Computed example of a mutant assay.
Amino acid sequence: MQEISVHYPEQWKVVNSRAGNLFTSAENMVGVVRLSNADGHLIQFDDGEWGLSAEGYRACNLVAGITTITPDTIRLADGRDVSNPYIEFDPETGTADKFWSQKITIGMSPSGKPVVSSATVLFDIRVRFVKELMQKIEENRDAGKLCMEGTLTDEELRSGIFMAFQGKLGVYGRHENIDVIHVIQNLINNKEHGDKIVQTLAWKASIKQQPSMPSTKIKAYNGVADVMVIGYKDNFDELKLNEIVAEYQETGAVVGAEVVEETFNASEEAIEVEDSFLSTKGGPRF
């Protein structure tokens, strides 16, 4: 991160905004953060453009200083109030099957209005496994096949794994195939670390909506990008932050604040290979 020396705050200009109207003031802290693909800050999309990973947002948050709140409970689509994060287990295997998390970040807008950004994420590892295995089968037919469960022979059942996704229709993978082995390893890892993964995804989805964060797509050269980040001054103590979250959870709105909400299923999205879950520098690792 680079320091910028500014001698005449009253002459500051527009510096960074998706809408082109973000101004700094004497109460703001400005930082240029160097992000690099080598350090895990950046991810490259299929179209060749670059975006920020969770590590990249953590690096930017060293300047922005946005607060993260994890509510004690989360309301699911079926109306249940459950613990946050929440894990559902497969009744047949007794292992983790689905993960939910909600993260709320609280920051400031250029106009000085609080911004409450909430993201609720579902991570279904069964859907993830089926999607990954189907992709491998499309690339290599020796990896397995789409089939009805009843069509598999006893030998195939002994030498492979079958996962139904629509009634008896499912996907079958052969144990000896190296691509299938990797998919099964991902399944085991997701079962073990799914709570951390879903919390990271929810945090990233929440904080990227904050005005002080860079655009979701940025210009990078040789895997390196310099982005300007603004730290907006606020006077939120712990009591005020808890009041804001309580008001939002009760009413879905916060008086005097802008509220941004996102709910999505991350089961079919790419998971970034990025995370050390131990350090909290720049933002939480769960």
Rank of each mutant, 00 (worst) to 15 (best):
P9Q: 09
A225W: 03
T93Q: 07
R174N: 04
Q102A: 07
V127H: 12
V259L: 05
A202V: 03
N177H: 07
F236I: 06
I271P: 04
R128A: 02
L22A: 15
V254H: 06
F165M: 00
K196A: 14
K217W: 08
V15N: 06
G194L: 03
E258C: 06
D124M: 05
E27A: 15
I181C: 09
L76A: 08
T216P: 14
L152G: 05
N190G: 12
R75Q: 14
V259N: 03
N265G: 04
M1E: 01
A54V: 13
M148F: 12
L35Y: 06
I4Y: 08
M228Q: 10
N61A: 06
V255Y: 12
P110L: 04
M29L: 15
E55H: 13
I66G: 05
P284T: 08
L146I: 11
L239D: 12
W50V: 03
H41G: 09
L133Q: 02
E139R: 04
P110M: 04
L42D: 05
A266D: 05
A59W: 00
A19S: 14
V254Q: 04
L201A: 07
L157G: 11
W12A: 14
A164G: 10
M148I: 11
C147T: 03
L239S: 13
G107E: 05
I87C: 15
Q44W: 07
N140A: 13
S276W: 10
N235L: 13
T153A: 01
E49P: 12
G79Y: 03
E262H: 11
F89G: 04
L146W: 03
S17Y: 12
G65M: 06
L239M: 14
G231N: 04
E268Q: 13
R285C: 14
T216G: 15
T251S: 13
N177Q: 08
E269A: 15
N37D: 15
N222W: 06
V224L: 07
L278E: 09
L35V: 05
V227Y: 00
A119C: 02
D72L: 07
N235D: 13
S109I: 07
K168I: 01
K217N: 11
S159H: 03
V82Q: 06
G167K: 07
Q166N: 15
S279M: 11
R158M: 12
S117E: 07
T67D: 10
Y172N: 03
E243H: 05
A205T: 09
G160L: 00
S109H: 06
Y172V: 02
V63Y: 00
W12Q: 11
S118F: 13
N28I: 05
V198K: 03
K113A: 08
Y172W: 08
E258H: 07
S5V: 11
V183L: 01
R174G: 00
A54Q: 08
E262N: 08
I244G: 01
E238G: 14
W50Q: 07
T95W: 04
T95N: 14
N242P: 00
Q44G: 13
T280V: 08
G160K: 00
V180Q: 02
W100S: 02
E268L: 10
T105D: 06
R34W: 02
P214E: 13
I207M: 08
L35P: 00
S276R: 12
T200K: 14
G40M: 12
S25I: 06
K196R: 13
A119L: 01
G144D: 01
